[in-house]
């Protein structure tokens, strides 16, 4: 095993250990909803500013205060995870940037720095590599396989007409195989994402949002 491979492996190991420690004591923890401490913070802030809307991105937004839409537009950039104001030039620079969805202004300079740091971190690179290493070859493969099928269907009539079993000919077999390969690849992708990406990505999500806070 080359040194690089070893390094990659050990960093992956660290990553998974970090995940385990994070998940310890939370057997039934739903990885994709907010962690309890984040929820608590949210609650506190909500109590501190009762005028603000009562919703957050990951909880149900449907319960949002539908009656105080206008109040929300101005209050929630500071107050809530579900900022509705797209551009709010008045937002204080120390507005909580993790929940400030004002993407075009990049008001807080440290926000960009944090994203850049996360972007360069080995944890993130690992996630991206895992994602791309599966998705890019898989996309290329299924597109080529599909285009090959389409081109064959129009340009190789003799091959397409070759009988396989009863009325089933090559053309129908290839067509049905497209269905099979689609189901198969979708299943493989979901399995890969669950096994190799979800936990690490979620861990990094909370870490990033903590740093942004």
């Amino acid at each position: 095993m080359s040194p690089q491979e070893l390094a990659a492996e050990s960093s992956a190991e660290q990553l998974s250990r970090a995940e385990q420690s994070r998940s310890a004591g939370e057997e039934s923890f739903d990885w994709w909803s907010a962690p309890p401490e984040a929820r608590e913070k949210q609650e506190q802030r909500r109590e501190a500013e009762p005028g603000a809307g009562a919703e957050s991105g990951d909880d149900s937004g449907a319960q949002a205060g539908a009656d105080d839409v206008d109040a929300r537009v101005h209050a929630d950039v500071r107050a809530d995870a579900d900022a509705d104001a797209e551009v709010d030039a008045d937002a204080e620079p120390d507005a909580e940037p993790d929940i400030d969805l004002d993407l075009e202004a990049h008001a807080a300079p440290d926000e960009a720095a944090i994203y850049r740091a996360v972007h360069e971190s080995p944890e993130f690179r690992e996630i991206r590599t895992r994602y791309r290493r599966f998705v890019l070859p898989a996309t290329a493969a299924f597109l080529l396989w599909y285009l090959l099928y389409v081109v064959l269907a129009v340009s190789a009539p003799r091959l397409m007409a070759r009988p396989i079993a009863g009325p089933l000919n090559t053309a129908w077999l290839l067509g049905l195989l497209q269905f099979v390969s689609t189901f198969l690849l979708a299943w493989l992708y979901a399995r890969h994402a669950r096994a190799h990406r979800d936990r690490a990505a979620l861990g990094l999500r909370w870490e990033t949002q903590d740093r942004l806070r």
Binding site: G57, L101, H119, F124, L204, R205
Partner: peptide, 18 residues
């Protein structure tokens, strides 16, 4: 490049997503 870094981090981890 900063905007792309932010997009990639958000896209793949969900950090800061609505």
């Amino acid at each position: 490049s900063d905007a792309y870094a932010e997009l990639e981090v958000r896209a793949l981890t969900g950090a800061g997503a609505v």
